[in-house]
């Protein structure tokens, strides 16, 4: 019997600013290359909750302020509360950039009212109010958690105006080696809650950090089939080269 995996992709038409679908492509192919059947469920404004509440893995990507506002209400009232329950029950998830902000208690954009969030993550975000203060550039961080990856590096690109503060119920994901991280001051990047990862490394986070993709897939299958799942290592030579390039040039 092949393992089956259902991945819910939240707001692919709104929360997908800059190559975010790279994460979905990587999750799908890396699963398929190991003989796992994958189904991607695209969940957007008009989708019913039944469409994704049985998903095994969640992904939500980045957005511009306008799109984040359009998704905001539906997310708060409809999709967010279900996702909160799913994440609390151990369903693995990846939230990058604007999604990382959206799953907190609120996001205050550079103009207009704060957008309340469902509080899946114990954090809040404020925009300091000036485009010039955006944190932009190639970024590197050293993982603190998950514990099996402690000391391993993640690489990516960040481009955000918001500054995020973590509450007491959530762990920082990594230590900033290069870049701005959560709020530009506390040296932390991203957050981990149960099996859900949030990061400011935007867009295609997983392509250059494939071990995180494998970790998410493994957690999803372990949850679903209630037994430890082992699977073959893949040929990640290109990924290693791409990572070394970033670490040598920007590290």
């Amino acid at each position: 019997m092949n393992f089956k995996l259902t991945i819910a992709w939240l707001y692919p038409d709104l929360m997908s600013t800059y190559g975010d679908r790279g994460n979905i492509i990587v999750l799908k192919k890396r699963s398929e290359w190991r003989g796992i059947d994958v189904k991607i469920k695209e969940v957007t404004l008009e989708s019913s909750i039944g469409n994704f509440k049985n998903a095994d893995l969640l992904f939500m990507g980045g957005a511009q302020d306008r799109q984040q506002k359009i998704a905001g209400d539906d997310f708060l009232k409809n999709k967010g509360p279900i996702m909160k329950k799913m994440v609390e029950s151990g369903i693995p998830a990846l939230f990058v950039c604007a999604a990382y902000q959206a799953v907190g208690h609120y996001y205050k954009p550079y103009k207009g009212e704060p957008i309340p969030g469902p509080g899946i993550f114990d954090l809040y975000t404020q925009h300091p109010g000036d485009q010039k203060k955006r944190t932009i550039g190639n970024a590197i961080a050293e993982l603190l958690v998950p514990i099996e990856f402690k000391g391993k590096r993640i690489v990516g690109f960040e481009n955000h105006g918001g500054r995020t503060r973590l509450g007491s119920k959530i762990q920082p994901l990594a230590l900033v080696l290069k870049g701005g991280g959560n709020d530009g001051h506390d040296c932390y990047e991203g957050a981990l809650f149960k099996n859900a990862i949030g990061s400011y490394f935007h867009g295609p986070f997983l392509p250059k950090n494939p071990f995180i993709a494998d970790w998410l897939i493994q957690k999803a299958l372990t949850n679903k089939y209630e037994k430890p799942i082992k699977f073959e290592a893949l040929n990640d030579e290109l990924e290693l080269n791409a990572r070394s390039f970033i670490m040598e040039k920007y590290g």
Partner: peptide, 15 residues
């Protein structure tokens, strides 16, 4: 290498 990764996935090249 970034481009290589992108095309490896686009072409479904496990190897």
């Amino acid at each position: 290498f970034d481009l290589g990764i992108r095309l490896k996935y686009a072409f479904d090249l496990k190897n």
